[in-house]
Simulated scan of single mutants.
Amino acid sequence: MTPLPQLTERSGFLIENGRFTTLATHGPDGTWASTVNYVPLRDPLRLLWYSLRRARHSRDIEADPRISGSIYLTALPGFGLDGAQFTGTARPVGPDELEELSAWYYERNFPDEEVRRQWRLPLDEFRGDGPRRF
């Protein structure tokens, strides 16, 4: 049996170095899995991503916030593959958190400022009737 500190270290490595998770949801049309690009948030541990509001997984989360997923990395020393599964709940980022969390998402995904400017969407996309949500 693997000692707990090793599992904690492995999980931390996966969360910090993975860029994508397979997100599983359940809604009125049944179960669904989709791939989303995330960045980790700590204290408490959370995953931050954005999606179109009309995407099936977004609609599913609106109907039932329970989620599960997996994060994995390949080309690692030894076996070459490691992964972790998770369960939790999801909610949209509130208006009071939007600016700060949006900045963190783009800074973490695009460390180069010029590249970040090219990819960054206006905050209005994520507010009110905008088409997206973090």
Rank of each mutant, 00 (worst) to 15 (best):
E125A: 14
D96R: 13
G94C: 05
W49R: 01
H57V: 07
E114M: 02
E107P: 00
S51V: 06
S70A: 11
P65W: 10
A103K: 12
I61C: 04
L73T: 10
D60N: 15
T89V: 09
L76K: 07
E114I: 08
R46M: 06
A55K: 00
R117N: 10
Y72K: 00
S51D: 02
G94R: 14
W119A: 10
T89R: 09
F110H: 12
S102H: 15
S102G: 12
S68F: 02
G83P: 02
P122V: 08
Y72P: 01
F79G: 01
T87W: 10
L73C: 15
R66I: 03
P44N: 12
S102F: 04
R54M: 00
P77T: 03
P92R: 15
G83V: 00
P44L: 09
Y105M: 05
W119V: 01
P77F: 08
V93K: 06
W104V: 11
D82I: 03
L76M: 12
W49F: 15
L47E: 13
D82L: 07
Q85D: 12
Y106K: 02
H57Q: 14
G94M: 11
F79R: 07
P77R: 08
T74R: 13
G88T: 07
P44F: 12
D82R: 06
Y72A: 03
R46F: 04
G94Y: 04
D112K: 05
Y106I: 00
G88Q: 09
A63I: 04
T89A: 11
G83K: 04
D64G: 06
R53E: 06
L76W: 09
L98V: 05
E97T: 02
L121T: 03
R46W: 04
G88S: 09
R91S: 14
R91I: 00
V93Y: 10
R91W: 11
G83A: 13
R59S: 05
L45G: 07
W104K: 04
R116P: 00
R116L: 05
D82H: 08
A63G: 04
F110W: 10
L45E: 14
E62W: 06
W119M: 15
A84P: 00
E100V: 13
A103H: 10
A84R: 07
S70I: 03
W104R: 11
L81E: 10
P44H: 06
S68D: 01
R53H: 01
G80P: 03
L45V: 13
A63R: 07
F86I: 01
G69F: 09
E113K: 09
E107G: 03
D43I: 06
G78I: 11
A90W: 13
R108V: 08
P65I: 10
A75I: 01
R66S: 08
H57S: 00
G88L: 05
L76Y: 10
R56K: 13
A84D: 13
R56D: 03
E125M: 12
L76H: 13
G83W: 09
P77E: 14
